[in-house]
């Protein structure tokens, strides 16, 4: 487990492509005081480590992938409708090759 610090909070935020203000960083740090206290309570629950974690809902029906059949298709106009920067029938993208 890594100890949470303001530097670590800035790092995680940066990895998420998010900038935090000094106040926001402090709020996250304060919230981790509470989370850590509560996580200690969880870690101390009797038999917790032997419980199988629940990640998903139990399925009511058998889960099956749908057939790979083309149904609805978007038109070019629909695809570019939300783009703020477009030319002709294409979306203008930022330069990605440095």
């Amino acid at each position: 487990m890594s100890k949470i610090t303001k530097e670590l909070i800035y790092k995680y935020a940066s990895d998420l492509l998010i900038g935090l203000t000094v106040e926001e960083n402090k709020m996250v740090l304060d919230e981790f005081d509470i989370i850590n206290e509560k996580m200690d309570e969880i870690a101390n629950l009797e038999g917790i480590s032997s419980i199988e974690p629940m990640a998903l809902q139990d399925s009511v029906d058998e889960v099956a992938l749908r057939s790979d059949v083309v149904s609805d298709e978007l038109t070019t106009d629909e695809v570019i409708a939300n783009a703020s920067n477009k030319t002709l029938d294409a979306i203008v993208v930022p330069k990605v090759v440095e």
Partner: peptide
């Protein structure tokens, strides 16, 4: 988001995310 990212880090998963799933 920062909390979510923290609990998903490999070194933190067991204590935070997996224990939450156990609860």
């Amino acid at each position: 988001f920062v909390i979510g990212s923290f609990v998903l880090q490999k070194e933190n998963q067991e204590r935070y995310f997996v224990n939450a799933q156990r609860v």
